[in-house]
């Protein structure tokens, strides 16, 4: 019988071979919406080093990604907007040269992750053509317009936050807490989901992330 449910965050994180020093981790969320806070806290407790974290923002305050950064687990951030209100931890580490930053236009970030999940190694996009963010990248004209070659992002692990899940790992989301979570779920070797509520079965008509993309789930409440 397929059963992807775990009793606790610690049990879910135990024995995940893809979580190791130097791993690339996709972390869902936009601002404070849809951030897998409990999984990030659990990851923090593992004490890994030199992680590459791919997430739209770089955390705020002292919780979530900010705590992971403050604990010295992150060597490199890939994000579109690391400068949200309260992103003090990241800004200090960045200023001290303790964390590297790759800045990516938000749509290019989403598409690079989707491409990773869909087996597309790279694609051309008009976004960023002619700007500093295209420097050093291949470019090409199609029908007289310039495009930049962007490479897919694949990760070792994705951490996602969802509203409901069933034992097969089918997921639904809540409003704009969906954001990057569904595309990230598709682009990692191991996808770990924290959910507000486990249900016997998600209605197949409303499944947003089919269980094929999800390996372990844990209920964390609201």
């Amino acid at each position: 019988m397929i059963d992807k449910r775990f009793e606790s965050v610690a049990a879910l994180l135990d024995g995940v071979a893809d979580l190791h020093d130097g791993a690339t981790v996709l972390v869902g969320g936009f601002g404070d919406a849809g951030v897998p806070e409990r999984l990030i806290a659990g990851l923090c407790a593992l004490g890994l080093r030199d992680l590459t974290v791919v997430s739209n923002n770089a955390g705020a305050g002292e919780h979530g990604l900010a705590a992971l950064l403050a604990a010295g687990c992150v060597g490199r951030m890939v994000c579109s907007f690391p400068r949200s209100a309260g992103s003090v931890v990241f800004e200090e580490l960045y200023a001290a040269g303790k964390v590297a930053l790759e800045i990516v236009p938000q749509g290019t970030l989403a598409e690079r992750i989707r491409a990773g999940g869909a087996g597309v190694p790279a694609f051309y996009t008009a976004t960023a053509y002619g700007t500093p963010l295209a420097e050093g990248k291949e470019s090409r004209e199609f029908d007289g317009r310039g495009y930049v070659l962007e490479h897919a992002i694949r990760a070792d692990v994705a951490l996602v936050h969802a509203a409901t899940a069933d034992r097969w790992g089918n997921l639904t989301y809540a409003k704009t807490a969906r954001n990057f979570n569904p595309v990230m779920a598709m682009a990692a070797r191991t996808t770990l989901a924290e959910v507000r509520e486990l249900v016997p079965m998600v209605d197949p008509e409303v499944v947003v992330t089919p269980g094929i993309f999800v390996h372990r789930v844990v209920e964390v409440g609201r």
Binding site: S80, F81, P82, R83, F90, E91, Y94, L101, I103, V104, P105, Q106, G107, T108, T125, A126, T127, A128, Y129, T131, L133
Partner: peptide, 12 residues
Amino acid sequence: PPAVGGAMDLVA
């Protein structure tokens, strides 16, 4: 640190 968000996608 630089931050671009969705601006480059929107203008393109």
